[in-house]
Simulated scan of single mutants.
Amino acid sequence: MLSKTKFLLPVLAGALLLQSCNDKDEFYTTADGLTYKIYEKDESGEYENKGKVSPDDTTGAKIGQVVTMQMSYKNAEDSLLFDSREQNQPIMIPVMEPTFKGSLENALMMMSPGDSGVFKVNADSLFAKTFGQPLPPFIKPGSQLTFFIKAEKIQSKEAAIADQQKMFEQQMKEAQARAEKQIKIDDDKIQQYIKAEGLSNMQKTESGVYYTVKEPGKGPQANAGDQVSVHYKLSFLDGKQVESSYDNPMSGGQPFTFTLGQGQVIKGWDEAIQKLKEGSKATLLVPSPLAYGEQDRGPDMPANSILRFDVELVKVNKQ
């Protein structure tokens, strides 16, 4: 969780940090070559340039501690490559031994809780010595990356892990509340769809998946822990087909095989397939929280998509 690979984050867009800071304030450079501006709040709550930080200053983060921060960074062309605020949560980075002179680790050790800073770091050294990866094509050799950092907390690794756990628990509660609200919205849409399409003999699982068995199977009942093979056609309620196992070149048109009830597939499948016997053909209508939920998987799978699966339970291998 708390590793320096946290720096290697997806390219995102968003507003820069430190918008209240005056870009005309002076930059300073350490003896190791790190260019910086650090701001601290004055008595009135306004940020002011902290000035030159003495090499003997020990008030910043120390090796072994974890800095909880908001961070963004740009390349030499002033293109924003990452902004943690787009993730709606701060990031946590442990302070390690500097991997080169003028490194980002040096920058963290110059900051105190509440400080904001702008740091220019050599891109070649950062990727070669800190990340151990080649320079990406969108970053020019010999250029600098400009980091904008707001240090929210500086604490021990143990305290940071405890905070991280609390944050995850809160996020899970919030996500569950949104899912409960969304499943009611989806249920109304599914009922309207069932009526409009004239689908008959629809049943509803405990969690909210609608299903109808079109051709009952004569084989064994599928249960959690069984290995099952399923053919399917996936479509949206508007009729647009997304994919089909029958003509999937990756699988050679073979049915999809997985272990039921082990979280290897979406929740709607784990629950609804257990309602079928080997040989059954059925239609499943899966509300988005039991499919891919809030995940936006691109134009082929927008967030909160209700899914229709026309399935055939080809084989049940009892375990």
Rank of each mutant, 00 (worst) to 15 (best):
D57E: 03
P136H: 03
P255M: 00
Y36V: 08
T205W: 06
G225I: 07
T29L: 05
F100Q: 03
G64T: 13
Q133L: 15
D83C: 15
G64I: 06
G239M: 05
N201D: 15
Q182K: 15
F100Y: 14
A272Y: 00
G102S: 11
I149A: 09
S44K: 12
L260H: 02
N317P: 04
E86G: 13
A177D: 13
F27R: 05
Q170E: 14
D23F: 01
G279Q: 02
Y292N: 15
L81T: 01
S245W: 00
E169H: 13
T35S: 08
E180T: 07
E243T: 02
V95T: 08
F168K: 14
L81K: 11
E46V: 02
N248T: 00
M1V: 11
S103E: 07
G33W: 10
D300Q: 13
D226Q: 07
Y210N: 05
I306N: 15
L313W: 03
A159S: 11
S245E: 00
I306D: 05
D270F: 03
F131M: 15
D163L: 00
S84C: 06
T205Y: 04
P249T: 07
S72P: 08
G208T: 05
L104S: 10
P216C: 04
A160S: 11
N106L: 04
L276W: 01
A272K: 01
A13E: 11
M71V: 13
Y210S: 13
V286D: 07
S229R: 02
E294C: 03
Y193W: 10
L108I: 02
S235H: 09
L104F: 02
D32V: 01
M172D: 12
T205P: 00
T212Q: 09
K6H: 07
A31C: 11
K6D: 14
G268T: 07
F27L: 10
M109Y: 07
Y246S: 01
Y210C: 05
L17C: 08
A13C: 02
I194R: 10
L260D: 02
P136F: 06
P98Q: 09
K4I: 09
L104W: 00
F7N: 12
Y36G: 11
I185Q: 09
I91T: 11
V316C: 03
Q19L: 10
P216K: 06
F7P: 10
I154C: 12
E48H: 14
S112C: 11
A162K: 15
L285W: 02
I91D: 14
Q221C: 00
Q89M: 06
S280M: 00
L290V: 04
L16S: 11
L17S: 09
G142N: 13
L34C: 03
S116E: 14
T130M: 14
Q65C: 06
F7E: 13
L34Q: 12
H231M: 02
A13D: 12
L135F: 04
S116V: 01
G217V: 05
S156L: 08
L8G: 07
N88H: 11
Q89P: 04
D56K: 13
Q182S: 03
